[in-house]
């Protein structure tokens, strides 16, 4: 069975990325150090941007891209805040 519709291909891609998100979530929970967890969640955030973009293309809803854009802009904030917190032991901003 070959999905002829290009939109279905986008949706299948989104489903694959969701499965990959679960793989990264395993690292976020199991990861022995804080750095492992932080990196896993950061990759998860990038993954989310890709999933949202694929869903926007697959479901023909271009305004999904707005949410993807906000995530792309804010994804680094958490990584920087936690990195600063672990290095300086308290300074966040």
């Amino acid at each position: 069975m070959i999905p002829l519709d290009i939109n279905e291909l986008f949706l299948v891609g989104a489903a694959i990325f969701v499965v990959l998100a679960i793989a990264m979530f395993y690292r976020a929970v199991a990861g022995p150090t804080t750095q492992d967890r932080l990196l896993a969640v950061n990759v998860l955030g990038t993954n989310t941007v890709v999933i949202l973009a694929l869903l926007a293309a697959g479901l023909d809803q271009p305004w999904f891209l707005d949410v993807a854009l906000i995530y792309a802009l804010l994804n680094f904030l958490m990584a920087i805040a936690i990195s600063k917190f672990t290095v300086e032991r308290g300074g966040v901003l």
Partner: peptide, 15 residues
Amino acid sequence: IVFGAYSLGMAILYT
């Protein structure tokens, strides 16, 4: 950190 992952999943669900 894991709460951040939760928020990512929720955002896709809302969308």
